[in-house]
Amino acid sequence: MTDRDLLREQWQTVAHALKIEFVGPFMFPLKNGHYEFACLLPQFGSERGMLIDVEYVRDAFAEAISAGFACSSMLAEEHHLPIDPADYINCLVDWGWSAKEPPPEWYHNAT
């Protein structure tokens, strides 16, 4: 399993537990091909969502941001397993709820 696969799996676990939308993998079209982000959280970061990947790739991130996405790079969790979705709430709150529908109750409780 690659680091990207592990990160995707971890965010899928968090999304399922917190009842938020998750798309993974997310293929983003570039001017010269495409880039595979680990995942997209459509309800966070910007109107088009938060793209997450294991590394910062300047061209892919720049094109995604120009297209209206927010982007974040992070490593997959290796030390605090199994994943506790509650550990990700502060990160999600920092990114901000960007969906038109109201956020879940846990989001209100964390802000």
Rank of each mutant, 00 (worst) to 15 (best):
E36C: 09
R4E: 11
L92R: 09
I89M: 14
L51W: 08
P42R: 05
T2K: 10
N109G: 08
P25R: 06
P42Y: 02
T13G: 06
L81G: 07
S66G: 01
G49L: 11
P85W: 07
E55G: 10
L30N: 07
E78Q: 13
I89E: 12
D5H: 09
N32Q: 14
M27P: 00
A99T: 05
E105T: 13
C71F: 01
C71Y: 05
H16A: 12
M74Q: 14
R4G: 06
R48D: 09
L6Q: 14
E78D: 09
P25L: 09
F44H: 09
A99Y: 10
Y56H: 13
M74P: 02
W11T: 01
C39P: 04
M74H: 03
Q12Y: 02
L51K: 08
E36I: 02
V93R: 11
G49E: 10
A15C: 13
E105A: 14
A110M: 10
E36F: 01
I65N: 09
Y35Q: 03
I65F: 01
S66I: 00
D59F: 04
E9S: 15
Y35C: 03
H16L: 10
E55R: 13
P104L: 06
L6M: 12
L18N: 06
C71P: 04
G68I: 08
E55Y: 05
L81H: 07
G49K: 05
P29D: 14
A86V: 11
Q10T: 01
P25K: 09
P29N: 10
S98T: 12
D59W: 01
H108Q: 11
C91I: 01
F69P: 05
A99S: 15
D59G: 00
F44L: 12
R8E: 12
E55V: 12
A64G: 08
K31P: 00
G24T: 06
Y56P: 00
E55L: 08
E63F: 07
H34Q: 15
D87E: 15
F69L: 10
Y107P: 07
F61T: 03
G45Y: 03
R4A: 13
H80S: 13
D84M: 11
A15S: 15
A110G: 05
F61M: 11
L30K: 04
S72N: 06
H79N: 14
T13Y: 02
V54H: 07
R48E: 12
H79P: 00
N109K: 15
D53I: 00
G96E: 08
L75D: 15
N32M: 09
M27S: 15
D53E: 05
I83H: 02
N90Y: 01
E55W: 03
V93Q: 07
A15E: 02
I52P: 01
E47S: 14
E9R: 11
P104T: 04
L18R: 07
F22W: 12
S98E: 04
M1E: 02
R4Y: 00
F28I: 03
E63I: 07
E47Y: 05
G68M: 07
A70V: 00
L75M: 10
F26C: 08
L51E: 04
M74L: 14
E21P: 03
K100R: 13
C39M: 12
A15H: 03
E105I: 11
P29L: 02
A67D: 14
E77R: 02
I89K: 15
A38H: 03
G45F: 05
E36M: 09
Q43F: 00
A17L: 04
E47D: 13
S72C: 12
S98N: 13
S72I: 07
D94R: 14
